[in-house]
């Protein structure tokens, strides 16, 4: 990426270190460790990352990394709070940061949910940051805290910008650690055409007829595209086309 990546205004050394730490995470096992370090650094009760609509190469429809206790995660699954949790519902549709305090707790189910969360150690105050990614995936990064309300009200507004930046970097970290990354390629129109027809089931000879090229030339373009996409074979290259929306 070149150019215009912005930095938070209150740019301080610790924050830069933190971002660098996030950037240095290379594999899955380090993710949870990093979330725990964040939790400690900001005196939080919990830190959680949930993503949906990740590029289909991953084969999962939901990705979760959180510092919640095992018992809360079990409870959450068992009660299917995935459907009820108002933070998730809102976080995957709005793009504005969400203060958990905005949720209407007059609904008994929602009140029970937040009450239980608190019993299982989730903080009573919380902020969530929606992230939208380049493949159309969505993520939500949430923090919760039990610090005194007066202190929370002072800190939360100041945290918004830092956590916007952190949330995005954590999302990128997960994509990287999970091996989901954009092929760093630009296919030429010819290469794209030859792959597309192949995706439509045409042989190199047939594509040659369609595009008025020799079969050999078609294979040449397909091979170039395959190499650029870092694909093992033609089928793999076509799969990557779909995964990364290069069509």
């Amino acid at each position: 990426m070149t150019g215009f990546t912005a930095h938070p205004m209150g740019l301080n050394r610790n924050f830069v270190n933190l971002i660098e730490e996030v950037a240095s995470v290379k594999n899955q096992s380090e993710i949870r460790e990093l979330l725990t370090r964040l939790e400690i650094a900001f005196e939080l009760n919990s830190v959680a990352y949930v993503a949906i609509n990740l590029p289909r190469i991953t084969g999962v429809d939901r990705y979760v990394a959180a510092t919640y206790s095992k018992s809360w995660i079990d409870r959450y699954d068992q009660q299917n709070y995935w459907r009820l949790d108002p933070v998730l519902r809102e976080g995957f549709s709005t793009i504005l940061p969400i203060d958990w305090g905005k949720f209407d707790v007059s609904t008994p189910a929602v009140r029970t949910f937040f009450g239980e969360a608190a019993e299982f150690g989730v903080g009573r105050q919380g902020l969530s940051f929606p992230v939208r990614g380049k493949y159309g995936e969505k993520a939500l990064f949430s923090i919760s805290s039990d610090i005194k309300l007066s202190r929370w009200l002072r800190l939360a507004p100041r945290w918004i910008r830092d956590f916007q930046v952190l949330s995005y970097h954590i999302h990128e970290m997960v994509l990287r650690a999970e091996g989901i990354r954009e092929p760093d390629v630009k296919l030429t129109p010819r290469e794209l055409e030859c792959l597309k027809w192949s995706a439509a089931g045409k042989s190199a000879a047939e594509i040659g007829i369609i595009l008025s090229l020799s079969e050999k030339t078609v294979r040449f373009y397909q091979d170039l595209a395959r190499t650029k996409l870092d694909a093992k074979n033609l089928t793999h290259a076509v799969a990557k086309l779909y995964t990364f929306d290069l069509l």
């Binding site: 203060d99 958990w100 305090g101 905005k102 949720f103 707790v105 007059s106 009140r111 937040f114 009450g115 608190a118 009573r124 105050q125 309300l149 929370w152 009200l153 939360a156 507004p157």
Partner: peptide
């Protein structure tokens, strides 16, 4: 403003 932390959080706090 309506969803700013101040008012609503206090409400959550007491109801929880």
């Amino acid at each position: 403003r309506a969803s700013s932390p101040t008012r609503v959080l206090a409400a959550t706090q007491s109801s929880i």
